[in-house]
Nucleic acid binder design. Sequence first.
RNA 1: GUAGCCAUAGCUCAGUUGGAUAGAGCAUUAGAUUGCGGAUCUAAAGGCCGGAGGUUCGAAUCCUCUUGGCUACACCA
Length: 595
Amino acid sequence: MYWKVIMKDIKNSWEKAISKAIAAYALSLNIKSDDLLTTRIMIQTPPKPELGDFAVPLFPFSKILRKSPHIIAADIKNIIEKLENKPPGYVTADGPYLNIRADIVGLAENLWKEIGTVQSAYGNNTSMCDQKVMIEFSCPNTNKPLHLGHLRNDTIGESIAAIIGANGADVYKVNLINDRGIHICKSMLAYMKFGNETTPESENVKSDHFVGKYYVEYNNWAKSSPNAEKEAQELLVKWENGDKDTIDLWSRMNTWAINGIFETYKRTGISFDKLYYESKTYTLGKDLVLQGLKDGVFYKEIDDSIWIDLEEIGLDKKVLLRSDGTSLYLTQDLGTAVSRHKDLPFNKLIYVVGSEQQYHFKVLFYVLKKLGLSWADNLHHLSYGMVNLPDGKMKSREGTVVDADDLIETLSDMAKQEIISKNREDSVGDLSETSSAIARAALNYYLLQVNPAKDMIFNPAESIAFNGNTGPYLQYMGARISSMLRKFALTQKDNSMTVAFDPSLLKLQVEHSLLKHIMMFPETVEQAGRELNPTNIAVYLYDLSRMYSRYYHDHQILRAGSDELIYARVVLSKMVLQVLRNAFSLIGIPFLESM
RNA sequence: GUAGCCAUAGCUCAGUUGGAUAGAGCAUUAGAUUGCGGAUCUAAAGGCCGGAGGUUCGAAUCCUCUUGGCUACACCA
């Protein structure tokens, strides 16, 4: 049995020690103040690693103790040094700061045991272990293939699911497929007019693109056909009345669209625990509204439409049921939320949906609360910004929308060219599999490196670049360490090297920093979960990689002086590699042994 | 018009309980390889953190105002 290394515990023990020292100091100065109890000791990170592992600014105590923070720092340092239960490590006073150098290396052995034992579970924690979380994302329309905007949604959803899962939550990923409505009828109508019974197979086109082609064709045709909209409406009525031919065509085209979309999911590593179809849920919610009317939280207009007054949340009035008694988007969402809570009594439901729908979710959550549903407080709209291109916005009308499949194809080709130009075809195993894994890393990392709340500009060439802050760079780091460890395994066999891990040999500042960074991973996972922000993981990962890169460049590992030093550095490298792998899995970067 | 979000280096982005000299990458310039994968590493240069006030010992971070951009405000989804 070993003592599990938890960075928080280390911080806590120091916080306690400092707190004790300050109390003793105040006593010696004959100062009694309640402020002393309420003023929190802040454990921060110093700007440079040479200064220490943790820093505590003493400004807040200056007023209470009536001394300059410089003097306080120096005095407290002396008191701590004489403390009986001083945590391992040492303290320096640098100006108004107390800097702490923790005994990181002393913990390295336990860290290694822990990582060696739990492996892919290192970083996991229990901060959300009592939570059942449902997360909805993607939600494609079945009239066209996915585009770059969907890819941001998908990767955020998948990553958040992985992150909160690592925090111990029971995660349930759902997708609501928008497979009905006027837009679907439009592509059907175009197919009826211009399709000539062709199929994706007969035309040799990916099936969702085949359907998308007719949606485009409808729009072209509609420009010169004043009756287009009306015809589409009539088709929708037929569909709602269950007209056999209409339903047949609808289901044939939907199968095409959905199969194609799921091929794309497979390529990008997206999956779901449950699929909901709008065609099956769109009537839900009506009863809910009628019940709300009975309970007096909604009201009826003269024309029989049902409304809610949103004055309480500073908004206008909103219609919930049309005068003809039919549902709206909002009504449907009310119904699906309730039926989902019946399917899985979640503590929390996260909707990954673009920021343009903030108003919708504000209203949705308010209405659910008005209906008296206790869980309505635990709904969350994870809103993300738009993806633009270097030369402007994506506009479907101007044909500047970046198709998801095309983009992945392009990125894969670029990766493939790079592998070929480096003459590494024979070393990478399956060439096309490897290049598509690199493409995925490029795409996901680029999309997740930007805070979801912000609009972003996607530059394809920049994303696939093998230099700089990119997914492929991170993969390369992993492949390089893997390659080195393979070599080590061979020499170990030859020499039958049998030495123990002696962390005290890791004397370099960069080794200390690497160990500390590895120890901070669980906290980073926790923070990313708390903030629902994968960017934290991306930033952490890049920092770790860069740190290791420099180490690897400046110091020999397999040719270090002694067997003992070689092994110590190999263990450090193994730990870095494990953390890389674990972090990769949280942000959709495939791990490659070789690339 | 009303509300919400955003504004950090030439470009793309980090930067949370307010703390030390605001950080990366790209591009530019100058370097490093008798090395475990150079798809690498080092360095230089590059900043009125949109602007103005305020709170504070201390503000990119909090508050107010202001400018600019995006989005939403359908008996569409």
